[in-house]
Design a protein around this nucleic acid. Sequence first.
DNA 1: CATGAATGAGCATTCATTCAT
DNA 2: TATGAATGAATGCTCATTCAT
Lengths: 208, 208, 208, 208
Amino acid sequence: MGVKERKAMEREQRRNQILDAARHLLFHSGIKNISISKIAGQAELGVGTIYFYYQNKEEIFVTLQEEGLSLLHDQIVTISNKRISQKNKLIQVAKAYCRFSVEHKNYFDIINYFLSSSIVFFKPDLKNRVDKSGFKVLSVIRKIVDKGIEKGQFKQTDSEKYTILFWATIHGVLQTRKMEATLLKDDGFDGLFEYSVNQLIHTLTQQG
Amino acid sequence: MGVKERKAMEREQRRNQILDAARHLLFHSGIKNISISKIAGQAELGVGTIYFYYQNKEEIFVTLQEEGLSLLHDQIVTISNKRISQKNKLIQVAKAYCRFSVEHKNYFDIINYFLSSSIVFFKPDLKNRVDKSGFKVLSVIRKIVDKGIEKGQFKQTDSEKYTILFWATIHGVLQTRKMEATLLKDDGFDGLFEYSVNQLIHTLTQQG
Amino acid sequence: MGVKERKAMEREQRRNQILDAARHLLFHSGIKNISISKIAGQAELGVGTIYFYYQNKEEIFVTLQEEGLSLLHDQIVTISNKRISQKNKLIQVAKAYCRFSVEHKNYFDIINYFLSSSIVFFKPDLKNRVDKSGFKVLSVIRKIVDKGIEKGQFKQTDSEKYTILFWATIHGVLQTRKMEATLLKDDGFDGLFEYSVNQLIHTLTQQG
Amino acid sequence: MGVKERKAMEREQRRNQILDAARHLLFHSGIKNISISKIAGQAELGVGTIYFYYQNKEEIFVTLQEEGLSLLHDQIVTISNKRISQKNKLIQVAKAYCRFSVEHKNYFDIINYFLSSSIVFFKPDLKNRVDKSGFKVLSVIRKIVDKGIEKGQFKQTDSEKYTILFWATIHGVLQTRKMEATLLKDDGFDGLFEYSVNQLIHTLTQQG
DNA sequence: CATGAATGAGCATTCATTCAT
DNA sequence: TATGAATGAATGCTCATTCAT
């Protein structure tokens, strides 16, 4: 291994070390309580060192978001590889994201953080990375949709648009969970979520 | 007019004056850049005076959110009073919210602010006010749905759930606008939005 | 009753109303959390009104302290009227103050507040009132001591000095309670307190 | 000297610089008038710098208190090393604390500050430091008592309890000084103090 | 490469007091 | 008498960022 490669590896290790610290803080104190100096403390590095490896706090957040989305991506890929109907895949994807929003609440928070921040807030390069990792997740879903259409399990539709709609709906519904007590009677949020997924699927399967 | 009434009016005026300042800042620098002392400066009042009229910063945000939702509520009420089919009403409601997210971007941001904040973030009384004004908006939509079902224009469905789904979908889709460049080809966000509304409506109108 | 008297009575009522509010706050939030405006809120009076009846916050504290010391005074008078030996009276007085520091912790805090504040902190008239009500308490104890000496139950000593010593010791010992965990082993604070009272009494009763 | 040592020294110097400022303020305006930004101003440092060296205001107070108690500790150690009777040592210790409360009034105030603050007021680590330095002082006194007992100069007693009683009494009596004018006639506070010390010593020396 | 000290503007919030009505 | 709106300095504390070493 050449010097270049070793340096690159070391660099990657340090970046990971920092990310570990940031993730730890994210999970233990929530997104509102992360500061560079806390990350530095947790990582047992100097504050300046953090800035050597990351341009600023946002970039760390972006990286964490990539991480979260990658985790989710893998789950969805696993689902998409199952030998079940495309319809069931979509249902499982929805459920997976729902579970993800609970079990990986902090990653969900960080996704929310980006989704609800102003578009002008981020530098183009960071925004690009966020978009890209989101795109990757959506691509997997889109392939499910496409295959479903191809196999005649779903009706013809613009799969790109459907995919985004699918995702945006699930995400939007998940955001309403915090108003559960006020908005929902009877069967609560779970009922709403099931209803929503049913409608989304029905949209794809009924004959118009 | 008695002294009491005059005092009450003056009080209301001051509250508005402060709200004007907060709104001004919200519109000119975004939600991330509002601080009490900036509001005080803008309103040409002492910092303490702000706290005399509002219990804390969150309450100002809540009031602004109520304001935004009230604005939206009125638009939707107007639509719901039109002599058009319930289906067309829903379409117009969706479009109204889309327009709202552009024309009143900052109110949309503040709705986002609440939707993406942690549930534990707000004191119960404030959370209640937010929920209540959100509920008011949803109620109008629900009435449209109910009437559509009643008149046989829509199929039978759980109107409460459908309403939330409707809203969550629209909101979720609007949140994706900032990724327009990356995610969407061809006809861009407008196409996506139209597609989404169509699907939402179709859900209500097709015969299962 | 003349106008003057009625006015005076009304005035006294108002002062009490304010004091009730201050006491309520003292007991419910502790001495650190009392502010004039909170008192005003609690008393359902205007802030300005408070200042009409009390020169400032300190005066309210002084009045509360008088109240606390008066309460204590009454307890001690009751003890001093009992038909028991003077020695037992002193023991009971000590125990009464110990109980007082627990059961009326907030009054004890306020006594502490004055005792540990700088001498220059208070205006002469307020300081005088504090001293006077402290003096009243001490006088009762002194009478017990005097009677004990007179009856030959106690040895000859400077009863004025002994009384202050007695009091200062009890108070000093009570202040150490918060270090119980660090300083005291075995039988803890209660043991220390009993030991201290014994020594104080022994001082008076043994033949030198 | 290596880089590490120099850094450590510089760090210590800065801490001292800040402490100097805090002490200056303590001595010139009293404990009620110390604020972090005043300390920063006095030390000609930024506010943030203060927090770099001390976790919060309390820690500065704790450090000052340690300083004061350490000063006192040294005086007492000196006394305890003298070739005089244990009884005379105790008398001199009492007098030393009395002098300390005058000559180092501000350190005495800060001891009072801790003694009259609520137990829940301080974080465990800070409380520990306070307790520890208080304990150190008491230990010296206790050794005097123990040696006195051992040598038969004092009667048998629980030296741990006696030591605390001794200290609490002296401290309590010193706190009454501010009421000198009201409470004490004739030979004033000095008479009271002498009387108190005599009684304390007598307690140890008389044969019960 | 890595450090970590230093900054100082910024934050939300509190409060005793005044004063015109 | 009684009010309560208005003040603005003050408080403890945080933080992203810089830069000399």
